[in-house]
């Protein structure tokens, strides 16, 4: 996600980056997405024929 859209997201939820759910950089999925520490990943997940948006803040580890 771009810096701007991250800020928008945080503002809409009224939180800081640290309040977001986290994902480790070493996570296979994070590596596949080429994520770097400090990024926020936006993911579309398809459950039961509907798609939902999830966010993960990439952290060290």
């Amino acid at each position: 996600m771009s810096r701007n859209s991250v800020n928008e997201l945080l503002a809409s939820l009224g939180i800081t980056l640290n309040n977001l759910p986290k994902i480790l950089v070493s996570d296979p999925q994070a590596q596949k997405a080429g994520a770097k520490v400090g990024d926020v990943l936006e993911m579309e997940r398809h459950d039961f024929g509907k798609s939902y948006t999830y966010y993960r803040y990439v952290v060290e580890g």
């Binding site: 939820l13 939180i15 640290n18 309040n19 977001l20 759910p21 997940r45 459950d47 509907k50 939902y52 948006t53 999830y54 966010y55």
Partner: peptide, 13 residues
């Protein structure tokens, strides 16, 4: 309680 987001939308939907 720490205002951490667990899900952005309850139950995904």
């Amino acid at each position: 309680v720490g205002n951490n987001v667990i899900q952005t939308l309850y139950g995904g939907d």
